[in-house]
Design a protein around this nucleic acid. Structure first.
Lengths: 249, 249
DNA sequence: AAAATTATTGCACAAAACTGCATGTAGTTG
DNA sequence: CAACTACATGCAGTTTTGTGCAATAATTTT
């Protein structure tokens, strides 16, 4: 029995019965309780279920499981997202791009925080729908299958009518010389509109993406107000971004 | 044994058993485990299966699970949705409202069918995102928490610019005298715009909702072109809808 | 046809992952 | 608080992986 198989089995059980017992699963699958415990711990970290004393229960969203089984470098992204959360103030209006970091960000927004969010990202919207205190406005348009965000004229149009306090703009690549760059032309157009629609641009990005660049440019580095990475703000890898009027957090 | 042959064999095994073990395949095909490992690595990159420690498993719908756990009268709605599917033609442009019947409808759209869908409903959009052949345009706007659809000026604006072949308009209540009615004023505004944006209005509704009405009116009954219920078209409960220029299916 | 290039395959070996067990700690229940 | 169950952690044995290398097969170029 493969590990992945067990995990899938557990998830299915949770989906059906809404809860599982460690011992039950262990017996059913003929492996030690420790193994199941470890599986469940992983699934918990992957946010596929909730680990509780003695077993696990489903996350219990209304009708959509926002599973993020294989987010790359989830830990780092959580760290970045948390730094981002600390920037939020009650009553603010923000704009969120797509990407897994922003997903994590959306997930971590405290339930009691009352803010208005705009987003063209379907997964982010799903996430935000679970927060009763957030006013959510979806930027509509043609949905790009790969990135699950709305693109094209409609989206850009809608963005042209708004001006938000702060934009959390995920990016494919960032470099102190070439600025923010992307691989996909359509997405560049959208992100340009997002930058235009925001008073402040916050750029959450894992250190790995620093000093890399792609074909098309979204904006210059000096348009970014705040740079969020998982690194210590004093880290040497951030040196080239200093003295650019960017706040590094 | 050709590489392609092996790969096909592996895929078939995965399709049938939902999983394969590296060692099993290697033994069956009489090649080294390394070779199979490489094959599976490639198939993984090609997104034909998921490589896991010890073997591979089918892709399944791990990431996003769109729950239909407790849809009221799901059987009936499935029946209605299927009738709706039969109205679809390749290349059409349709508009889908929210509601569980339309969710079911979206789920049942055949993967090979190539159509363009507009919708202001987040769950419907999620569902449609899983279909590669569907062009999806999300009608953006302020998201209503309870119904999970976009409402307000933005949504209505966006609708005012389109004219689709057919609209599948779920409704709260329908009556031969009072037409389509709703409980929520905002949603009425949206649905009015949806009716306006469509050449044909199809109204999928379970028989239970026939002959009931609510506070606010969406449109008159003669604006509905096709009425879809789970009943036999000749059923007596549909009598009052006859001779209204409505096609009953 | 010969030579050169590229792709495929098996093997070796160190690194990583997996799993059960033992141990001490934390949480739960009566 | 005492008995009990569940938990985290470290360890060891086993299996699986990734990678470099060499031999062979297939393809292209000359």
């Amino acid at each position: 029995m493969l590990k992945a198989e067990r995990k899938r089995f557990i998830l299915n059980e949770v989906r059906i019965h809404n809860r599982v017992l460690l011992t039950d699963i262990a017996e059913t699958l003929n492996v030690s309780v420790d193994t199941i415990r470890r599986d469940i711990t992983e699934l918990h970290k992957e946010r596929m279920l909730k680990k509780v004393h003695g077993g696990a229960i489903s996350l219990g969203f209304d009708n959509i499981h926002i599973g993020r089984g294989d987010i790359y470098a989830l830990e780092l992204k959580t760290k970045i997202a948390q730094k981002g959360i600390s920037l939020l103030k009650m009553g603010q209006v923000i704009l969120l791009s797509g990407g897994t970091t922003n997903m994590e960000f959306a997930r971590l927004i405290p339930v009691e925080l009352q803010i208005t969010c705009f987003t063209p990202s379907l997964p982010v919207a799903n996430q935000l729908m679970t927060k009763p205190n957030i006013d959510l406005i979806f930027i509509g348009g043609k949905m790009a299958k790969s990135s699950q965000i709305a693109i094209g004229g409609d989206a850009i149009n809608m963005l042209s009518d708004i001006r938000v306090d702060m934009c959390f703009l995920g990016t494919n690549s960032i470099d102190s010389k070439h600025g923010l760059t992307e691989f996909d032309w359509e997405i560049v157009q959208l992100k340009k509109a997002m930058v235009k629609a925001s008073k402040k641009v916050v750029c959450p990005v894992i250190s790995e993406k620093l000093h890399s660049d792609q074909r098309y440019k979204v904006c210059d580095i000096d348009q970014v107000d705040i740079l969020l990475t998982e690194l210590d703000p004093m880290d040497a890898r951030l040196d080239s971004f200093r003295d650019k009027n960017i706040q590094i957090i």
